[in-house]
């Protein structure tokens, strides 16, 4: 079970199939894409009204279709992450938001009320997260990881931060495989059903071993970097060129997001 989850996670992280298709987003410069999708993400975060969110949802879905990413695939990918965030964070909203009660749950002497306002808040919250995760997925699905890293460099993000992301991306794969091998090795020697406690003990052991191995690997990788003349400063050459259509795309996304944001601001100001 744990092993399968790790493998699925690996597929999600490393799939670059759609970066090769000739869709709309694939043709857009990586930096422009990073900026526009961040704009969509931020707009989703600040939007309070369902209409604004719905507009953003339409944008995300259209971009996905124009980029030749099967809708079902995007839905599945995004929905995989949703329960983790949404269920944990949004579900309390169901109960703690005051308003007209639609249902109540009795736990012993305790009565928990579910309100219409609560349902509304929780759904908007989940919807908002869905759009954010979908926007992020569009970026990952249509852009090669190296280009994302180069765009971060162009944006002038701190070197150490970019290095950390790049190296994490490269090595998380190795550690997933390492963990997967440990799980298989353990399963091959498990001949009867074990208690939850035993399983938990195995997982903690596995993680502590992984930490030690990660540390040792870090040392070796650093040596390999030194061997090739690394002295702390990383240098790269960027190959991402911008076209006029890129600017047009950025302008379009920024205008729409700007419009949504202005409406949101006006609404909250009481208009």
């Amino acid at each position: 079970m744990l092993g399968e989850f790790l493998k699925a996670f690996e597929d999600i992280m490393y799939l670059e199939k759609y970066t090769e298709s000739k869709g709309m987003l694939q043709k857009i410069n990586a930096l422009i894409k990073l900026l526009s999708l961040t704009a969509i993400l931020l707009s989703a975060v600040v939007s309070r009204s369902i209409y604004s969110l719905f507009a953003l949802f339409v944008i995300v879905i259209s971009l996905s279709t124009l980029s030749r990413i099967p809708l079902g695939y995007l839905l599945r990918r995004v929905t995989l992450f949703i329960p983790v965030f949404a269920a944990a964070i949004a579900s309390p909203l169901l109960f703690i938001t005051p308003g007209s009660t639609v249902a109540h749950i009795n736990i012993g002497p305790l009565i928990i009320q579910v309100t219409i306002e609560g349902i509304e808040k929780a759904s908007i919250f989940t919807f908002r997260i869905w759009i954010c995760v979908a926007a992020l997925n569009l970026l990952i699905l249509t852009t090669k990881f190296t280009q994302i890293i180069q765009s971060m460099e162009e944006l002038g993000l701190p070197r150490i931060f970019i290095n950390m992301i790049a190296i994490t991306y490269r090595f998380i794969f190795l550690f997933i495989n390492e963990a997967y091998r440990m799980i298989l090795a353990k399963q091959s020697r498990t001949t009867r059903k074990e208690s939850r406690m035993q399983h938990l003990r195995f997982i903690t052991n596995m993680f502590s071993t992984l930490f030690v191995r990660a540390y040792e690997k870090g040392e070796r990788v650093y040596s390999a970097m030194l061997a090739r003349g690394f002295n702390g400063a990383t240098r790269t050459h960027n190959h991402n060129k911008k076209k006029p259509t890129d600017s047009l795309f950025l302008l379009a996304v920024f205008s729409i997001c700007g419009l949504i944001l202005s409406i949101e601001i006006l609404r909250s100001a009481g208009w």
Partner: peptide
């Protein structure tokens, strides 16, 4: 002096 390590996974740390 160029050194190639035993485990290529130690040596290859970039994304391409």
């Amino acid at each position: 002096v160029g050194l190639t390590f035993q485990n290529p996974d130690d040596q290859l740390f970039c994304s391409t």
